[in-house]
Design a protein around this nucleic acid. Structure first.
Lengths: 263, 263
DNA sequence: TGAATTCTCGTATACCCTACGAGAATTGTC
DNA sequence: GACAATTCTCGTAGGGTATACGAGAATTCA
């Protein structure tokens, strides 16, 4: 791990890049596109979107490692250092890639039609988020502890907050509940993607991996030290899938939140 | 990220290493320690525990990157390649480091005294897990999608299962609920550690990071496209800490699980 | 004493990101 | 038409990573 996110130099520049395609009414020209059509200087052969989209495509198809600055440049037919004309660093490029796939996640915006039931609204968030991770498995390799504060991330926060607002809790509790839900959903989607990514890159299913470790039970597992596991095993409690567990946990979390409404 | 866990060559050998200090009654000698005292050949200058403990110490003190094979060898006063006598690869060493800190997490074993209340038992798991991540921030940089199947990991699973068993749900539901709880707790502990790690390595607090991005609100944020965020903001709903949110979410999840008991 | 065994570790390979600075392309001005 | 100003292009170099290979050193037993 290359100690990602060690601090982007100029936040203002990063913000301008993230919001390059979302100008507010009556705003100045953004950083994408030629911008100032006039002016001296060599014409650029690419634009920021080219670099970001190619990065996403390479990472989707061949893994995040393929989206190295060198690999990306080769794919685009330019020298490696040329990319630094469009993007300040690899870290910022990753931010742009992440926010782009967040933008493409289809969540109803304010005013757009949506289910009445707040749980059904949360369900949309859950499904879209998991689908996004499945389509871009490399998301599970990118830290978003300091997320790209771009249009995609804000749209996600906005949607989930608006869903939980329907419950009529206090403002603080609404925010807190929304954070708890994103923690659960995003983390589970993250784990699902990571799991599939490992299966793909190793060429070995999780079942096969566990089978290879059969010796664990025969040689090392001590029944006396693990009575609960043994009990669950004998009661055939180990046949549920990760998806079942995810569903169950999310439903129980929403149950618990909903129960606060009446108090 | 160096595409970790691309598959360890020999699962049997890995298991022997993980369980090197936990022999079952009447088992053969393990892989640690000189083992067969007699026999020809040069005497080893280290043992597996030396390597693992030094790896943990270095990662704790100077970050996971400092626990490279080269850095570790220098710390131990040997050549880099010498380490490969004790550990098959960097990946396996990471497995050993992870399981070691899992072993050191203090959870009551079977038969040991523990609270009567199942929620209090879960609380112990939560606190110990978070403390473990805080003490070994590098855990947040290591994928455990294919966990080290050693004594530490099994002890954790055993404890949480035993706590949930006290609720009297079906075997399948007990297992499912325990998985949901670990997903939530482990993920949140992971995120907490990652957050602190980023603060440490960048030398910048999260508050300072957000402050640097103040332009977001002034220049790019569009109130019309984010009515829910705006409403929460005006109602002063943004003053809760991540710890509050974690607490709230865990309590609601346990509420929801407990409510299944009576149905 | 010599064979067998085991541990030690230098070298070499193939990646990664990016600072630096020289060169190429384009426009506007005189 | 020449030249300055500007902007994009990109080769080189440096410091980092894990580990395959194989020669050499140390130790014990016959």
């Amino acid at each position: 791990m290359s100690e990602r996110r060690s601090g982007q130099g100029q936040p203002d520049k990063t913000l301008a890049l993230l919001w390059r395609n979302h100008r507010r009414p009556a705003a100045e020209p953004t950083a994408n596109e030629p911008a100032r059509q006039r002016g001296a200087g060599r014409r650029p052969s690419l634009n920021v979107d080219d670099v970001v989209q190619t990065g996403i495509r390479l990472a989707d198809e061949q893994g995040l490692a393929a989206a190295s600055m060198g690999g990306l440049a080769k794919e685009l037919g330019v020298g490696t250092m040329t990319l630094y004309t469009y993007v300040p660093s690899k870290d910022e490029l990753l931010d742009l890639m992440v926010d782009q796939v967040l933008v493409e996640r289809e969540l109803p915006g304010p005013g757009a039609p949506r289910p009445d039931d707040w749980r059904a609204q949360v369900e949309i968030y859950s499904q879209q988020t998991r689908a996004m991770f499945q389509q871009h498995l490399w998301l599970s390799q990118v830290s978003t502890i300091r997320p790209p504060v771009g249009p995609g991330m804000l749209a996600g926060r906005e949607y989930l907050l608006s869903a939980v607002l329907g419950l009529g809790l206090t403002a603080t509790e609404t925010n807190t509940a929304a954070l708890a839900i994103t923690t659960y959903v995003d983390s589970a989607a993250h784990l699902e993607a990571e799991s599939r990514l490992v299966e793909r890159t190793t060429g070995q299913t999780n079942d096969a991996w566990w089978f290879e470790r059969n010796d664990l039970w025969e040689t090392y597992f001590d029944v006396d030290r693990h009575p609960a596991m043994t009990a669950i095993w004998h009661a055939k409690g180990y046949d549920s899938t990760p998806a079942d567990s995810y569903r169950y946990g999310l439903d129980r979390l929403l149950d618990g939140i909903e129960a606060m409404k009446t108090l």
